[in-house]
């Protein structure tokens, strides 16, 4: 952390104890707990969709395919930029890496802005968990919107965490705490960000593409 620390690290370049594979393995293990967390929610979705196919269909028509598609493209592009920032840093192109990371964070914020408009639109239409309008509907529709708010909400929470994480990582790249020969922290954050993208790849057709 301190200057002296940094000098020691660079002086003992080849001898500092560091285990990149171990660090990545830890990250992957964490990602699996995330897959199981969302997997459980997808399971609940699957069972109720089979139980109430028509009501899921009706409720799904209320969601905007356009907003869902735009957010899909935004997340896919942010996944690209974070991947490019890793390659850039490995090729010792620090400024490109910084630009790509900043782009990723901007796209993540854009995603959240869209989400804000989407959700506030739903709220003003009287659709939010526990609202009278929602509770007067059929069971299947209540379940659909319950799952919609929980699953896309939990996903949005992950996006927010990603914004904080990537900002910290960006600071570390700028301050040379992350360098071309020591990119594992950037790579692990990238893995987290790709997982957020991956979950959205499934959320999108299941919620926004019911026609």
């Amino acid at each position: 952390m301190t200057d002296s620390n940094h000098i020691i690290e660079s002086a003992a370049d080849n001898h500092i104890h560091r285990d990149d594979i171990g660090a990545k393995m830890g990250m992957w293990l964490f990602l699996f707990t995330e897959i199981l967390l969302f997997g459980g929610l997808f399971l609940v979705y699957a069972v109720y969709r089979f139980q109430y196919p028509d009501q899921f269909h009706i409720a799904g028509m209320d969601l905007s395919t356009a907003i869902g598609t735009i957010n899909t493209i935004i997340l896919l592009t942010s996944s690209l930029t974070v991947a490019l920032s890793i390659t850039a840093l490995q090729k010792q192109n620090k400024s490109l890496s910084i630009i790509m990371l900043s782009l990723t964070i901007s796209l993540a914020i854009l995603f959240m802005i869209n989400k804000y408009f989407e959700w506030s639109g739903k709220f003003s239409a009287g659709i939010y968990p526990g609202s009278e309008d929602l509770l007067s509907r059929h069971n299947g529709e209540i379940l659909f919107f319950g799952l919609y708010f929980v699953m896309t909400g939990l996903h949005a929470l992950h996006v927010l965490v990603g914004i904080v994480l990537l900002s910290i990582i960006l600071g570390m790249v700028v301050n040379k705490k992350i360098t071309y020969d020591y990119t594992v922290k950037l790579e692990n954050s990238g893995l987290y960000w790709h997982l957020v993208d991956l979950i959205w790849i499934f959320l999108f057709p299941l919620f926004y593409l019911i026609q």
Partner: peptide, 25 residues
Amino acid sequence: ITPYSTYIIVWLALVIFTSITVTVA
């Protein structure tokens, strides 16, 4: 080190698949 071009091609494929899935829906 994955080349930039690989990532860009994959991104293009992802966008194309997204448009297919929206169209099919």
